[in-house]
Design a binder for these strands. Structure first.
Lengths: 144, 144
DNA sequence: GTGAATGCAAAGTATTTGCAGTCAG
DNA sequence: CTGACTGCAAATACTTTGCATTCAC
């Protein structure tokens, strides 16, 4: 698993450190996590890991193509592993639920922009809106 | 124009102030502006307007439905007027150019999610990727 | 006159940076 | 050994908040 990590780091003349392994593993385990959440998770296993290390490492991992980030809220970005299948995020602003969809969802969009020579970063895509439950809730303020 | 503003404010028992007019006008003139840019623009006309007023006002204007925001960078949000036709933002990560597209671009996506009862906030949508020019530039580092 | 809105300054959150010590290779 | 990496603390960017004053109505 972090074999991949070691290899890619070496290619770039970078070093494999326990922090980098832990942070990558945290992203993989948490599925969708903000830098803060990653930090908390890593700290729950090994004390003393610093926030700046998390930021710096996430940046490195993203450059290596091992993680990706997207913006699932107006606040901090969330990171996920690229070992998962690429997916599109659909976020409900009412209940903050996040659902993942197959990239096929946006294929016509990708094709349309592709004709203009624009290549869409599907993994970064976050689609905001309101889910069925929350629409219903908004319609009837006092549910039975 | 800001007739609309006066009316909507009154509906809510809110007040029409010069700052609110100026900030709304700034958003309309700048097309896509961060709170900072709005502040700078307003200040170029009238000195002493405060950053907190800009934040508070953008929030009010958004509640009134007169402006919308979207995230066109990893940094500050950008606001635009709802008097423009609703549009989808397509952002190149290479040159940071922003192009606006007709919502038709994402209609199949909206329809597909609609079947699940999910209603997409099209105006908030930002699609990231790489434009033709930047792909070309990446391919040939040293252009002739 | 009265309460909504503003300006100011201080606090808060998220992230970045400089630097000295540490550790991977 | 050497330079990449880390932790720490300070700095930065962005945004929010409390409060006294001002101004729209």
């Amino acid at each position: 698993m972090s074999d991949d990590l070691a290899a890619r780091l070496r290619e770039q003349g970078l070093r494999l450190t326990p922090q980098r392994e832990l942070i990558l593993r945290a992203v993989e385990e948490l599925r969708h996590a903000t830098p803060d959440e990653v930090l908390a998770h890593v700290r729950s296993q090994v004390s003393s890991v610093n926030a700046s290390t998390v930021y710096r490492t996430l940046e490195v991992l993203e450059e290596l193509g091992l993680v990706r980030h997207t913006h699932l809220s107006d606040r901090a970005p969330t990171y996920h592993s690229t070992r998962e299948h690429e997916h599109v995020h659909v976020v409900c602003r009412g209940c903050h639920s996040v659902r993942s969809y197959d990239p096929a969802l946006v294929q016509s969009l990708v094709a349309a922009l592709g004709e203009d020579g624009f290549s869409v970063d599907v993994g970064h895509l976050a689609i905001f809106g309101t889910c069925a439950d929350c629409s219903a809730a908004a319609a009837s303020p006092e549910p039975t």
